[in-house]
Amino acid sequence: MGTTSITDAQLVHKAKGGDQSAFEELMRRYARRVWTLSYRLLRNREDAEDVTQETFLSALEHLKDLRDEDRFGPWLAQIASRLSLRLLDHRRRSPTQSLEGLTSEVHDDENGGPIPHPEFIAEWRDDPETLLLRKETRDLVEEALNSLPEKYRAVFLLRDVEGLSVKETAQALNISETNVKVRLLRARLQLREKLTRLFGDEATRRMPHHHHDADPNLGGF
C-alpha cells in the first residue's frame, strides 16, 4: 500500500505506537504548510524556520495527547500559530521594533466599530484557478494578505486557509469565538476590496447601495 492512501489519522495512530516512518510521512505532508503559515505570520525566514522546527518537535513530544487523530493538520496549525504569536509578542517588546507592533493595535475595533461597506464592486476578470497560474498575480495575492493587520491575517489563515473551526481558532489565538468571527469578516472584506481593485473588470463595476440617510459622512458616491 502506498503512503498516499493512508489517512492522517492512521499515520498518527502508527506514530503513537512508535512507527518513526509514519511520523516522517506526516512531516512530508505538512512541513510546507507549517512553514508557509509561519512565514506568512512572521515575514522573516529565520523566525519561520525556528517556528517550523519547534512545531514538529512539540508535535513529537505531545503526539500522545492528540485525541482527535484526524485533526492532525489543524492541531499543527494551532501549535505553529501559538509559537508565531509568542515570537511576535517578543519582538514587540524589543525597543527597536515596538512601532510596528503598536500600529497593528491602534485600530482595535472589534467592539462595535461599523463594518466598512464594500466600495469597489465588480466582477472579476478571471477565476481563482486562472489567477493562480501566473507568478505576477500570485505575488499580488500574497501582497494583499501581507497588508492585512496581523490579527486579521492570523484569523484568516487559520480559518480560511488551514480550515480550523471557529473554536479551534479561538483556542489557538486565545481570543473569544465572537472575536474570531468579527476579525474573519473584516479580513475577508479587506481582502475582497483589495483583490477586486486588482482583478475586477471596471466595465462591470456596480455602485454600492447606501441605506444610511442619517449619516452625512457617507455622501459622495
Binding site: 464592486i121 472579476w124 481563482p128 494578505l145 484568516f156 475577508r188 475582497r192 483583490l195 475586477g200
Partner: peptide, 10 residues
C-alpha cells in the same frame, strides 16, 4: 461572488 473567489484564491 467576490468573497467566494477571494477565499478560494487563498
Amino acid at each position: 461572488d467576490n468573497l467566494k473567489k477571494t477565499i478560494l484564491l487563498y
